[in-house]
């Protein structure tokens, strides 16, 4: 790994653990100086960026949750349960999500992550329990959610129209978000002709387009390459720092250290 890449990754890892920018840059500069002077490989001296970031954070005694728990609640769920044909999918789920928080939703296949997100989005009704929120919501489903026969800017125009954005505003905002995910929108292809990862980026951008208060993202960076996945988190951290909240379901382990709260679902029967 190149020193530059290592340092960049290290910095992201520190950020993901909620280290404030000033401390972060101090630690990174000091580390860079050491690597420079010792003339050795960062991997040899410090190990993997994520591991080293974890030991730095632990040495600093910083909490990994930077958002104060007394932020106002943006969404709460109380004792949610859902069954399909008498087999239970979700059982007594509670959520208390605050402004500026990212909640990671983890669990094996069939543990009800998608069902829970759909309930929270108000798309399906729970059998028991209540969801309480007044937040505006952007939802990115795991599959579908885009029209295979429409081009990217046509999607932007359609989704933007819901928020009252005109075509130019929606396109400009969409291109800005796409740029942050390392994608330059061109309009030569319809959604069905985009690669899997790019179609996923489009779907994600559509969820973020009107800057809703809360993002509900179902496996949002599945199919992203490493760089894009990193960009996704950067985008989400900025989102959170601006007071936005998000619930992200994922199979990737990295979600554990990058989120502020974890909710682990287990297959129920």
């Amino acid at each position: 790994m190149k020193t530059e890449t290592w340092l960049q990754k290290f910095s992201f890892e520190l950020e993901s653990r909620g280290l404030d920018p000033k401390r972060r840059s101090e630690v990174v500069v000091e580390t860079a100086g050491f690597i420079d002077e010792s003339g050795t490989e960062p991997l040899e001296q410090f190990g993997f960026p994520s591991d080293y970031a974890a030991s730095v954070i632990s040495a600093l005694g910083e909490t990994t949750n930077p958002s104060p728990p007394d932020n106002p609640t943006i969404m709460s769920a109380n004792q949610l349960s859902k069954s399909y044909r008498s087999s239970s999918v979700l059982s007594q789920i509670d959520i208390d999500l605050r402004e500026g928080q990212i909640l990671a939703l983890i669990g094996p296949n069939g543990s009800g992550k998608t069902t829970l997100l759909k309930i929270l989005a108000g798309m399906i009704q729970p059998d028991h329990g209540t969801v309480t929120t007044s937040a505006s919501i952007g939802y990115c489903p795991q599959i579908g959610g885009i029209n295979p026969n429409l081009r990217p800017t046509e999607h932007l125009q359609l989704f933007g129209a819901g928020f009252g954005l005109d075509k130019d505003q929606a396109t400009a905002e969409g291109k800005r978000l796409a740029g942050q995910l390392d994608w330059e929108i061109t309009d030569r292809m319809t959604a069905s002709e985009l690669s899997g990862g790019t179609a996923q980026k489009l779907s994600l951008i559509l969820a973020m387009l009107g800057r809703p208060d809360l993002l509900l993202l179902d496996e949002p960076y599945q199919g992203f390459d490493n760089k894009s996945a990193q960009r996704f988190w950067e985008l989400l951290w900025t989102w959170r720092d601006n007071g936005g909240a998000a619930i992200v379901s994922s199979h990737s382990e990295d979600v554990l250290i990058r989120a502020d709260q974890i909710l682990e679902l287990e297959p129920t029967s």
Partner: peptide, 15 residues
């Protein structure tokens, strides 16, 4: 002493 051991130790001492 690799940097990965040195700096966390310094940070702990400082803290």
């Amino acid at each position: 002493v690799p940097g990965g051991s040195l700096y966390p130790a310094l940070l702990r001492l400082e803290k």
